[in-house]
């Protein structure tokens, strides 16, 4: 399958990248590992004029300990990040979600920034132009109806990132930069909850850093897939425990991860969150297993994650 025509530019600095973006009237996409972006372009889901490669920018590939935070450059690959000793020691939940992401080869190409900002997916969306033309364009394609839930006004495509939910449970923040300057937001604020355009990132903004408070945690990531590798999560549950409290994030169902907090961990509170997450989950028939089943798996995986943490930590 060949790519449609576009121009390729390699940026050396963030400033240069922002300038290139503005020069192309916003019809540009930033490229990191390309494991999400390139298939979307091949399927003609995106038709950019220019691709701006961020991999040549110095500093976006570093992991630094600054004060009490771990500052992670977005261009670091999932595989490299996984090797970082802080990750395994401090954030078992993130370590597990990194380990569970796709397959080893794609971990070596995919970056953490790209992984966080991956587009939402749907069985009726991630198809060739010919397929989609025959089917009729859905909401996410700029059409008038959702092809999965015909009377819906919103898009149910699934956010399938494994690592954003883990990062949310460890209070990660994102530093974004644009021509107007920098801003730092909590990771969950990046999600718009609208499948059509799942992120709150403004046009041209670049993810510059992921900042994680450096506190030791316990945690686990539970992922439901059919196969043992390559697959996106059909449901993913990240749980991080800090002393008596816990944070739970659910991914793979709907356009953004759902986040829950537990003030005091006990059987009752875990069950409550599990029930709550069950109620919140509104999967539709847009992934390979049935919606009701995926919904049912949310509390199952939440309880499993807690059980595993209780049984002696993340690993």
């Amino acid at each position: 399958m060949i790519l449609p025509k576009f121009d390729y530019k390699k940026a050396r600095t963030i400033e240069e990248a922002l300038e290139l973006y503005n020069k192309h009237d916003g019809n540009a996409f930033y490229l990191a590992g390309g494991t999400d972006l390139v298939p979307l372009i091949k399927l003609r889901l995106l038709q950019p004029k220019v691709i701006i490669d961020l991999k040549g920018i110095d500093g976006l590939k570093d992991i630094k300990k600054i004060n009490n935070s771990l500052v992670v450059g977005p261009n670091i690959t999932l595989f490299e990040l996984k090797q970082n000793p802080f990750i395994k020691d401090y954030f078992p939940c993130l370590f597990e979600s990194l380990e569970a992401t796709s397959c080893k080869t794609l971990q070596m190409r995919g970056t953490i920034g790209g992984n966080i900002l991956q587009n939402t997916r749907c069985l009726q969306y991630n198809k060739s132009l010919e397929w989609r033309t025959a089917r009729g364009f859905c909401l996410k394609m700029g059409g008038k109806v959702c092809n999965v839930v015909p009377n819906s006004k919103s898009c149910f495509s699934n956010y399938c990132g494994d690592n954003a939910p883990s990062l949310m449970t460890i209070d990660a923040k994102a530093k974004l930069v644009s021509a107007k300057g920098e801003r730092t937001v909590r990771l969950e604020k990046l999600f718009s909850e609208d499948g059509r355009s799942p992120f709150t990132i403004k046009p041209g903004e670049i993810l510059k850093e992921i900042i994680i408070p450096l506190k030791k945690t316990k945690g686990a990531y539970e992922k439901l897939t059919v196969r043992g590798s390559i697959d996106y999560p059909l449901v993913g549950v990240a749980v991080t425990v800090k002393k008596d409290a816990a944070v739970v994030a659910v991914t793979g169902i709907g356009p953004s991860p759902h986040l829950y907090e537990i003030k005091e961990i006990n059987e009752k509170s875990i069950n409550e969150v599990a029930d709550w997450a069950y109620e919140d989950a509104r999967p539709v028939l847009n992934a390979v297993l049935t919606p009701l089943y995926r919904k049912k798996m949310v509390p199952v995986l939440i309880k499993r994650a807690f059980k595993r943490i209780g049984a002696g930590g993340g690993r």
Partner: peptide, 23 residues
């Protein structure tokens, strides 16, 4: 052609990569 299968894997500076996903 979409990075799912690995048949196009080559080594880029020693790292295995899906060459169908690389410009």
């Amino acid at each position: 052609s979409l990075g799912s299968c690995g048949a196009c894997t080559v080594l880029v500076n020693g790292t295995p990569m899906r060459s169908c996903l690389i410009l």
